[in-house]
């Protein structure tokens, strides 16, 4: 390449130097990149270790079983019962997944199997937008729209009373937040299926819906299942919406229309004021650890189920 031969010796000396420089860059960059690769693991380990270390005071003070089953949450007198928040979290998670999952799967079927051309582009970009809207905005719209709806219409229509803030309100909003996330994963796994599957099924006389129900949903099953589990993890760890809409009451809710508390909203609502008491701080950090472990189990479960179903439902 270097053909300017004004001095041959100079070019001779240049070339190894340039190679040396390239190799040096290569070596240095590979150290950096290996470091970056290990950063993911290090970050995870650091988070877990820090949370565990900070949770030790509360766990050594109160027994784990007692904290998880006691319904008395009163940090001022050092009573740390997580049961109300756990019940609230389960309520919210189950309700929003029960509302969100069927709609998500049906909408995904529409996008993957029914919609065509421009309609498909429009609907899926709407869903991308919905997925990107910050949850605090959902919280605000929830305050403006869903709270009066639940308080003035839904609760009276079902013969109960509600102040508007409560588990049902949070579940409705969370169902909306988690849907686009599940839709895009489900659409992905439906679209990854080969067209031969559809052709074969339609060819033996199945209707379109029968094809979807008994062939496509089954073949895409592992993907859909892990989408649902990941959706569970999402609702479970949602913080801002519950903190804004659940009403903040640490008693075991009697009906889904009651105000309550979820584990993440417990952190938000109690952290600010109670930072000064070290034991409370530790108790709330323990909630963070609990969240991390449970979400980790969800993810791990999603991976295992996916592998297992892939073997069973292979086509």
């Amino acid at each position: 390449m270097d053909t300017t031969t004004d001095s041959g010796s100079n070019a001779q000396a240049d070339r190894p130097e340039r190679l040396d420089r390239r190799l040096l860059i290569e070596r240095l960059s590979s150290y950096w990149l290996i470091g970056a690769g290990l950063f993911a693991v290090a970050l995870f380990a650091l988070i877990v270790l820090t949370l565990v270390q900070q949770s030790i005071p509360i766990v050594s003070e109160h027994s784990l079983l007692e904290m998880l089953t006691s319904s008395n949450w009163d940090p001022a007198s050092e009573e740390f019962g997580y049961l109300p928040a756990i019940v609230g979290t389960i309520y919210v998670t189950v309700l929003s997944m029960a509302m969100g999952t069927p709609i998500a799967i049906l909408a995904a079927i529409y996008i993957a199997e029914y919609a065509e051309g421009r309609m498909k582009v429009i609907v899926s970009s709407f869903i991308d937008v919905l997925a990107a809207i910050p949850s605090v905005i959902f919280g605000l719209v929830g305050l403006i729209v869903v709270v009066p709806f639940v308080g003035d219409y839904l609760a009276p229509a079902l013969g109960t009373h509600s102040i508007g803030l409560g588990i049902v309100t949070v579940s409705l909003v969370m169902a909306i937040i988690v849907t686009p996330f599940m839709i895009s994963l489900t659409v992905e796994s439906l679209e990854a299926l080969p067209d031969e599957l559809r052709e074969a099924s339609l060819g033996v006389g199945a209707t379109k819906w029968e094809t979807i129900r008994s062939v496509l949903l089954r073949a895409a099953g592992p993907g859909i299942f892990s989408a649902i589990l990941l959706g569970f993890g999402r609702v479970f760890g949602a913080t801002i919406v519950p903190a804004m809409l659940i009403g903040g009451q640490t008693a075991i809710p009697e009906s889904p229309f009651d105000a309550g508390e979820t584990l993440p909203s417990l952190i938000v609502n109690d952290f600010g004021e109670l930072m000064s008491i070290p034991l409370t701080q530790s108790a709330l950090i323990f909630v963070g650890l609990l969240l991390l472990v449970i979400v980790w189990l969800f993810n791990f479960g999603a991976m295992l189920v996916r592998r297992r179903l892939q073997r069973r439902w292979q086509y």
């Binding site: 993911a40 970050l43 995870f44 650091l46 988070i47 820090t50 949370l51 990941l230 993890g233 999402r234 479970f236 760890g237 949602a238 913080t239 993440p264 952190i267 938000v268 709330l284 950090i285 963070g288 969240l291 991390l292 979400v295 980790w296 969800f298 993810n299 991976m303």
Partner: peptide
């Protein structure tokens, strides 16, 4: 990375 991806943001805040 998948575990970090699914971790609730509040956990990062607490960390």
């Amino acid at each position: 990375l998948n575990v970090l991806w699914g971790t609730p943001p509040i956990v990062y805040g607490v960390f």
